[in-house]
Design a protein around this nucleic acid. Structure first.
Lengths: 136, 136
DNA sequence: TAATCTTTGCAATCGAGTTGCAGTAAAAGG
DNA sequence: CCTTTTACTGCAACTCGATTGCAAAGATTA
């Protein structure tokens, strides 16, 4: 596992106090985090600072965002080597019971045969249902 | 093509003036519509009535909703015979240039191999890029 | 017809996301 | 170092899509 400092250095994002704690928090969580999740976890950091930090991270491909249909955008740290290209696509799983969103890095996305002359740039693939913990 | 009345009858939704015009509008559009799109098209119908109509339609599987990442939920009429089951899944294409969202009924979704004990119930699959009209 | 339930329209509210601005901190130039 | 410039942070205010409370209007049932 890389440290926060290493990741920011690789992605050419200047290291600051807020950025370090936000990234550390994201790395420590198994599920994707909303702005509110992060705000609640980092009690003394301002929402707009976190918000701008997330935007900066996303622009520089430190994290990617997920629209899971819960009404709040979730964020997760990109896998090592990810460039957020179509080749880096992966499914996200949203558990409708426990409200957690996971990256399914290990489930391959088959090639999508788009209609003629359509150009794929990115995608937001959210699969919904019950996670292993809730499907008992 | 079925009429609005036929569709509502099949889906067991009582026919009212608002429901008819909302459904008629959705049927007439090739791209998925947001609440605002519908509101603008139906000048004398109240937003909250349209909103509640959309909720009713969705509950009764007359339409399905799409989170395309534009910030506004889009709605499209379900294909004939659709029960909004996993088998009825289809991709949605969001054109980042013209801001239109289409249902790609003709592009098959391969079987998704979820991790052990995960249960698929539904999905929101949005592919983003340029549509044929904008990719010139 | 009267009683009941549903739908509709209006206004108000909610909440996630976003922005302006001033203060602070960090980097660059001398 | 000290000054100048640039970037980051915190606060408050605001935007806008979504949602709800309520009363009036309409439809259904007894």
């Amino acid at each position: 596992m890389q440290t926060e400092e290493e990741i920011l250095k690789i992605k050419k994002v200047k290291n600051t106090a807020v950025r370090t704690v936000v990234l550390r928090h994201l790395l420590s969580q198994e599920k994707a985090q909303s702005l509110k999740d992060i705000e609640n976890a980092l009690a003394y950091t301002d929402r707009s600072s976190i918000f701008r930090t997330l935007k900066t991270f996303e622009e520089n491909k430190v994290i990617h965002s997920i629209e899971d249909g819960s009404g709040m955008t979730k964020y997760a740290v990109c896998a090592k080597g990810c460039n957020c290209d179509p080749k880096d696509l992966h499914y996200h799983f949203y558990c409708t019971n426990c409200d957690k969103t996971f990256c399914l890095f290990d489930v391959p996305i088959p090639k999508i045969q788009l209609p003629e002359n359509f150009k794929l740039k990115q995608a937001n693939m959210v699969v919904k249902g019950l996670c292993d913990n809730c499907n008992k």
